[in-house]
Write a protein that binds this DNA or RNA. Structure first.
Lengths: 262, 262
DNA sequence: CGAGAATTGTACGAAATCGCTCACAACAAA
DNA sequence: TTTGTTGTGAGCGATTTCGTACAATTCTCG
């Protein structure tokens, strides 16, 4: 695997921060920073992508929308990634919705500009390919997890995944929304969340969930959180400086994991 | 999307059949055809890939293996695809197992040879990218399905997916194995399978499941089967001639589907 | 302040699924 | 043929989750 050294600049998105100075300048020239409000839909299934999105904070969620309108999350995207991998594959529409899960700010680039950059720069393609693989691994694991783990475990996993992607311990989320993400009823989320609260791992009130005990949450979640974190730290090994100064994410959980070879 | 015309040759794998004559000759020169017996493990999680595999019949299954040894399927690969997408992304190991789900024959190419071909031939990369996107879509949908649909629906979906990938109506599968794929107990499979049998959609005995009524099975499955088929027919639109002469797969179900734009 | 909306708590029976166990049939190898 | 293995059927209580409904609380906006 090619080692990519992130330029030391004040860029909140990992992928962008990992670009060379020259390429970063080109990307910046065609990118636009816009706010991403809670629940805004960035990508509509089956419609041509207009932009690719690089979160600088907050996070996005890729969800499958069923015919009856219900939806289930496929994967989560934050500062470590981007929405629009399909463009790398030369495809301009996807069967999934992209929705803002935690409000924040995103950099966006039009499809046309991004295609041009991709065509021109092997460095960008190489980086995107790494991310593409990380994404595949995340989606595969999350899907397996959906099949076999309890709502409470998946809830803990989901909170951890999201916590890794925001800057504070407070996640602005309703239980209703969490239910949509996990593909379960809100009432099931209430049960799971109150169990986690009773255990002192989180606290919440009216659309605000606070992570109190990360290590405890990791213990309460299934192994899938660790597996998903590991996928990213393995494929995108270099962290920007600023991430290390935040809550002890990764310090406690992500490092030094290996596969169970079996 | 670039249109790729499959050469008219006797090649059972869609991806290979879609190559130009020159490239196909190069691929053939470095590939080796080997039998793939039931339950053989082709790829071990966390270990460097030795080969990429193109099924010519039968099918492979990518599964997540949990710490306790249980496993859940992430996706299925047959004549339409290949195992080893990660190499396109420059990654030589994956967190998932690849196991033979239905015995058959595969063409394999060493990682080294395949890397060399990839580096040399944009045509191969373009085709692989299409497949990579189809794979992502399949995995995402399957994972969502795991979260919200019943064992019986998922069982029907799984049988259809597999049926699409083999040449006969008889699937050599035990309920035990099916349980592993779906991530449920064998007893749950027995219940689901006997319901499908009672409805006259399938019949089975001792490791042999026969599809009797495809249309009925499609009705019994969730919408996810259609969604997954559609992903392939959209991204890999050109079918080899020989597939059309088999059971009425695709004729009844795959064609003329569109997204629910929402 | 008051009305309405949004969010959460809780309860209930129904259904699905689990974990486990035993029984039996079919097949394979000795 | 005998014996051991594999695959399937079935039953049982326990547990999870569902679907639904309603009440209580908190927030927002007029």
């Amino acid at each position: 695997m090619k080692s990519i050294a992130p330029a030391q600049r004040n860029e909140k998105n990992w992928l962008l921060s990992a670009l060379s100075d020259e390429l970063y300048a080109l990307v910046t020239a065609v990118s636009e920073t816009v706010p991403a409000p809670y629940k805004e839909i960035l990508v509509v299934p089956g419609r041509p992508l207009e932009y690719v999105y690089f979160p600088l904070g907050g996070c996005l969620s890729i969800v499958t929308v069923m015919k009856d309108g219900s939806s289930v999350e496929v994967g989560t995207i934050g500062w470590e990634g981007m929405c629009g991998v399909s463009l790398l594959n030369g495809i301009d529409q996807v069967p999934t919705r992209c929705i803002i899960q935690v409000e924040g700010v995103v950099k966006r680039i039009t499809r046309k500009d991004f295609d041009a950059l991709l065509a021109e720069h092997g460095e960008l393609r190489a980086l995107m390919r790494l991310y593409s693989q990380a994404w595949i691994d995340q989606v595969g694991r999350a899907g397996s997890c959906n099949g076999v783990h309890s709502v409470e475990q998946r809830c803990a996993r989901w909170l951890l995944i999201t916590h890794d992607r925001v800057e504070t311990n407070e996640l602005p989320l309703t239980q209703e929304f969490l239910g949509v993400m996990l593909g379960v009823r809100r009432a099931s989320v209430t049960v799971a969340a109150s169990a986690l609260q009773r255990a002192g791992l989180i606290s919440y009130k009216r659309g605000k969930i606070t992570v109190l005990d990360r290590a405890g949450l990791e213990a309460a979640s299934c192994e899938c959180y660790a597996a998903m974190s590991e996928a990213y730290s393995r494929l995108l090994p270099i962290e920007p400086e600023w991430i290390k100064t935040r809550h002890d994410v990764h310090a406690s959980s992500v490092r030094n994991r290996t596969y169970a070879v079996a």
